[in-house]
């Protein structure tokens, strides 16, 4: 009885700490996350729905949306294939340089996106290593769509692999070996055993990869050249309009990106809630 009483007297300051901490976190969240997010939509609709739709329907806006989708449609599947292959190699084979490969996969997370973009300019730009040769053959990479795709692939490379490696390591290769002894070919083993075991983690990785591919600014900005209607993706279009004091237009497109982010977040939460045990617990580096 006395023990219960004592624990109550101890509990009060402790509960106060709980309340203070929770309040602090909430204030922080509202101030730095929810408020800016709300601002995006408020600013976008400041002059009503008609100007909002008008801003999105402009040809430059439509072409930016198309370009963003095009870049994502190329970059995401490529990184899906690369991510699965890299995760497979790292978790299933022993080879020299394996640790190095694992470390290099993380490189895009640790390098500033601007540097990632610059690297491609130095390689393929007019003054770059391959610049003259590309010029002679009439191939344009920098300040063109291929450059945007390359920069995006580079920046989003780790997402799928980083998601799969811990899971495939934990699952081990026994099931795949069992499939082989039972007579499955390599492809049968992959599609009937490996893929079903990693499908939710793979989807999760692709989701994060896609969100980053569509939202990337830094690397893309360096290689884009900002040619309106040709090489501006949505984030670049937002910046350009903002700089030209076209606030409704800037926030209208920003609101689309924000919607995409919210959708990704919802799907991500759904996956985490439903298949949490099949998804590696850690979330790979920031956007």
């Amino acid at each position: 009885m006395s023990a219960v009483m004592r624990s109550r007297t101890v509990a009060w300051p402790r509960r106060l700490v709980h309340v203070v901490l929770i309040a602090l976190a909430l204030v922080f969240l509202v101030l730095f996350l929810l408020l800016p997010l709300a601002t995006v939509f408020v600013e976008a609709f400041r002059q009503g729905v008609a100007p909002y739709l008008e801003a999105i329907k402009q040809p430059e806006a439509l072409s930016a949306i198309k370009l963003t989708l095009l870049v994502a449609v190329i970059a995401v599947p490529l990184n899906l294939v690369f991510g699965v292959a890299a995760a497979w190699a790292i978790t299933r084979f022993e080879f020299p340089g394996k640790a190095l490969l694992g470390a290099f996969i993380d490189l895009p997370f640790s390098v500033s996106p601007v540097v990632s973009g610059l690297v491609y300019v130095l390689l393929f730009g007019a003054q770059g290593w391959f610049g003259p040769w590309l010029d002679d053959h009439g191939i344009k990479i920098i300040f063109a769509v291929p450059g945007l795709v390359l920069a995006t692939i580079f920046v989003t490379l780790p997402f799928v692999a980083r998601e799969l490696i811990p899971l495939m390591q934990a699952q081990g290769s026994e099931e795949e070996e069992a499939a082989r002894v039972l007579g499955a070919s390599g492809w049968q083993m992959f599609f009937r055993v490996t893929l079903p075991n990693i499908r939710w983690a793979l989807l999760y990785g692709v989701l994060l990869c896609n969100a980053r591919a569509m939202g990337e600014f830094g690397a893309v900005s360096v290689v884009s050249g900002h040619i309106r209607g040709l090489t501006t993706t949505m984030p670049l279009e937002v910046e350009m309009r903002y700089n030209e004091y076209e606030y409704v237009g800037a926030f209208a497109i920003a609101s689309l990106l924000a919607l995409l982010a919210l959708l990704t977040l919802a799907l991500k939460s759904l996956l985490e809630w439903r298949y949490g045990d099949e998804i590696a617990a850690h979330a790979p580096g920031g956007h």
Binding site: E174, E175, R192
Partner: peptide, 8 residues
């Protein structure tokens, strides 16, 4: 297999 390796 030691841990049976059933297809989960």
């Amino acid at each position: 297999f030691q841990h049976y390796a059933l297809f989960r």
